[in-house]
Design a protein around this nucleic acid. Sequence first.
DNA 1: GGACGATCGCAACCCACCGTTGCGTTAGTG
DNA 2: CACTAACGCAACGGTGGGTTGCGATCGTCC
Lengths: 201, 201
Amino acid sequence: MSEPERRPGGRTSRTTHSVLEATLAELIDHGYVELGVEAVAARAGVHKTTVYRRWESKQRLVLDALRSAAADALPAPDTGDLESDLRLLARSVVELLTNPVGEAAVRAMVSASSSSPELSATLRDYWAARMASMSPVVDRARSRGEVPAGTDAAEVVKAMGAPLYLRLLVTAEPLDDEVADRSARAAAVAARAGAFVAGAG
Amino acid sequence: MSEPERRPGGRTSRTTHSVLEATLAELIDHGYVELGVEAVAARAGVHKTTVYRRWESKQRLVLDALRSAAADALPAPDTGDLESDLRLLARSVVELLTNPVGEAAVRAMVSASSSSPELSATLRDYWAARMASMSPVVDRARSRGEVPAGTDAAEVVKAMGAPLYLRLLVTAEPLDDEVADRSARAAAVAARAGAFVAGAG
DNA sequence: GGACGATCGCAACCCACCGTTGCGTTAGTG
DNA sequence: CACTAACGCAACGGTGGGTTGCGATCGTCC
């Protein structure tokens, strides 16, 4: 009944990394729906069985691969002006979404989210954390008096990012810095006007 | 070499309709990824072969089903006030996205859009038309002087809808009228402030 | 109403891919 | 060096997309 001894040694972590790397690569090339475990194994120079022994399903494998790639939390900018800060954030989001890895990651998350409630919850937590990491930008604007007290920081950040994700996922329109700037400006203007004050009518 | 004679008669259109209807139903129950052609055929009371004879692939089938269901263009409201109009639109979008058929349709489109460039183009056209059908709301506001000349109507509409789609697809947060109202208010405020004037810095 | 052809049902098939099992081999680790 | 976790390998079961050939319907036109 005792747990088998773990072996964090050289070979294990080596194959783990190469499999996760191969998963990301296949994700970029074929997307989540058409991702094949056999193809991942071949690309990683590993046998299919090895993948299944370590990850119980395709979903878990992809989830692990995404988690290993998404550890980088971008630092919140601080220019002293809300719109400038939002503009920088919006541009970094555009950079993420126009990068093949980032695009594949987001698409995979969206595709997978409807599969299982557990995965859906995991992703909700992930995005909540991501939004929270951008919130300081709004908090500082609030303490400067740039936006009214009671302004919901997460809502401002979402208003800034939402049009960018809409273009990528829904309308299939191209993304560039101009779109980012416009989106940032709209969010900043609305925030200053008090559109994101909690409980406002 | 001559085309086989088309037969728009009773049986053909009958099976076509039942298959498309069954496709929508299966789409609601299982989503695009796990949609099975055999299940669709069974549900439609039709043999699998029949489906494949008429639709060359699963993608095409789903695309056709969605097109047949999405013909309904919601009429643009006209209350005499931009924010009120946007609020009504936003609420109808929420209604669409919380409806099982609507949610399944949107998710299917998103999942499918990354598969083929042709499908992606089709969807781009579809969404462009949908945005355009809502544009009169902004046009009227412009002629009332409520928003500056040069305001991009499609961008306003997108700003109104984007947070709703973000919640459904990305952050997996619940949708309700409160969210709709807030989103409409933010878009209206930003539009009035001239944030969507083309070429504005 | 009869003939012709489009469409359908049916059975059987190929093939790709997910996921599993048993066994022999390699390679960390004490 | 002995022990065993981890890997390679071959083979298998199952599901589901997509195809083919043939015989049975059903719409259409004369």
